[in-house]
Computed example of a mutant assay.
Amino acid sequence: MKHHDYSDSGAAEPVTLTQLRKNIFQMVDEVIATGKPLTLTRNGCSLVLAVQHQEQSKLARLKPRNTVIGDLDSLESEDTGLWDADHGFD
């Protein structure tokens, strides 16, 4: 992916709307990939395109835990009880 020229301060050079229109998908992908905002200029006004922090889902925030006690391979050979409606599990 071609990156835009950055000034000595590390900030991205402002981009005109014409430049954005020609390369919008590439520029947006770059902002997402690098996290560096993109400054757009039009008639002396500046707009900034930046990635907002997106909170992770509850599932993504779960910490992995070692919950199996014993040998994982022995789980394959474990016998399970048979269900009987009158007596429950054997």
Rank of each mutant, 00 (worst) to 15 (best):
M1T: 00
K2M: 07
D5E: 10
Y6K: 11
D8C: 01
G10C: 03
G10Q: 05
A11G: 07
A12V: 06
A12T: 02
A12I: 08
E13S: 08
P14F: 02
V15A: 11
T16L: 07
T16M: 10
Q19H: 15
L20R: 06
L20D: 06
K22M: 13
K22H: 04
N23K: 13
N23T: 12
I24N: 14
I24W: 15
I24D: 12
F25M: 14
Q26R: 04
V28P: 02
V28F: 10
E30P: 00
V31I: 03
T34S: 12
T34L: 00
G35D: 01
G35W: 03
P37M: 05
L38S: 04
L40E: 08
T41M: 00
T41A: 02
T41V: 07
R42T: 11
N43H: 08
G44F: 10
C45D: 15
S46C: 04
L47M: 14
L47W: 15
A50L: 00
Q52P: 06
Q52R: 14
H53T: 09
H53I: 10
H53Q: 07
E55Y: 00
Q56D: 04
K58I: 05
K58M: 07
K58L: 13
L59Q: 10
A60I: 05
R61F: 00
L62I: 04
L62W: 00
N66W: 00
V68K: 09
D71E: 14
D73I: 05
D73R: 15
D73L: 11
D73Y: 01
S74E: 15
E76P: 01
S77L: 11
S77Q: 12
E78T: 07
E78I: 08
T80L: 14
G81F: 01
A85G: 00
A85S: 14
D86S: 12
D86G: 13
D86C: 07
F89S: 09
